[in-house]
């Protein structure tokens, strides 16, 4: 009897030792984390354009009510590879080898040759891509800006070269689709094409762009209409005006937004920054 007891005790001891040992092996060295989340400012002064905002009819909305867009400033072009490199230099937590998986999947800055080296053959002034929403947000914070809202972006997207709202022009959507259909266009440098009515470049010809509230595009599980909002699937259900039913370019943008998650890194998805403003249009010239 006594023997049995002893052996049981010994077995327990051995097991516990092994188990505890094993766990201890797993223990990682404690890292000194000096508030790793805080964003260090990056000195990048991209020209911003004053957009007066106003009432606009969102292309796709549950309500199809007009929305008021307050005046805002928008980067005149997307953020470039070189600028993002400056950002990760100042913010090690956003380097490829350091980034937290909760913020970026494994395609983050895919093809960069290292933490601080752009992809081979990448133009420094081409738009940065393979960027998750979280990193775009952090970049914007580091330059004292923010991401544009979906409404701000779409308000600006109504403009063609000549007018602030070209949505009723037949050619408007066709021209954008022509740009959208070109593959690998994200490798071109920014500002090689003409500006729109507001003086903003590259809204359509290089990349898709993150917006702050990209996740406001619901294609299903809408709390008001129950399951499976049919809007995006049935063309006529989503568009709010007759002209918009033919606005295939807008459908493509909304389809893209509905398909992405904030930690995705995609070959042709980048971003630009925006900012609140209180200045009036008359001061625009001085910007």
């Amino acid at each position: 009897m006594k023997r049995t007891w002893i052996s049981i005790v010994v077995i327990i001891l051995v097991i516990s030792l092994i188990a505890c040992n094993k766990t201890q092996d797993d223990i990682m060295p404690v890292q000194e984390q000096n508030s790793p989340e805080s964003i260090h400012s990056t000195q990048i002064n991209t020209k911003m354009v004053y957009i007066p905002g106003g009432e606009y009819r969102p292309f796709y909305s549950a309500d199809s009510n007009d929305v008021f867009v307050a005046p805002f400033l928008m980067d005149e072009r997307p953020v470039t590879n070189q600028e993002f490199l400056e950002f990760v230099k100042a913010n090690p937590q956003w380097r490829r080898s350091n980034v937290k998986r909760i913020y970026a999947d494994s395609s983050y800055l895919k093809y960069w040759q290292g933490d601080l080296k752009l992809p081979q053959e990448a133009l420094p002034d081409a738009p940065v891509t393979y960027i998750p929403w979280f990193a775009a947000k952090a970049f914007a914070e580091s330059v004292g800006k923010r991401l544009p809202t979906l409404d701000e972006w779409e308000f600006l997207a109504m403009a063609d070269q000549d007018t602030s709202n070209a949505r009723t022009k037949k050619q408007y959507s066709d021209d954008i689709i022509n740009l959208y259909l070109e593959k690998d266009r994200q490798y071109k440098a920014v500002k090689q094409s003409g500006p729109n009515y507001w003086g903003v470049y590259n809204m359509f010809d290089l990349i898709w762009e993150w917006t702050d509230d990209f996740n406001s595009v619901l294609i299903k599980s809408d709390s008001r209409v129950g399951e499976d909002d049919k809007g995006l699937f049935c063309a006529a259900g989503g568009a709010t005006t007759a002209a918009d039913i033919l606005n295939y370019a807008a459908y493509m943008r909304f389809a893209l937004r509905a398909s992405i998650k904030a930690n995705y890194n995609i070959a042709n998805l980048g971003f630009r920054c925006a900012k609140d403003t209180i200045i009036s249009p008359s001061q625009n010239q001085e910007l």
Partner: peptide, 15 residues
């Protein structure tokens, strides 16, 4: 099933 699968298979580029 919902959308014949379309409701759950929208894949962004690369996904």
């Amino acid at each position: 099933g919902p959308g014949g699968g379309a409701a759950v298979t929208t894949s962004a580029p690369g996904q």
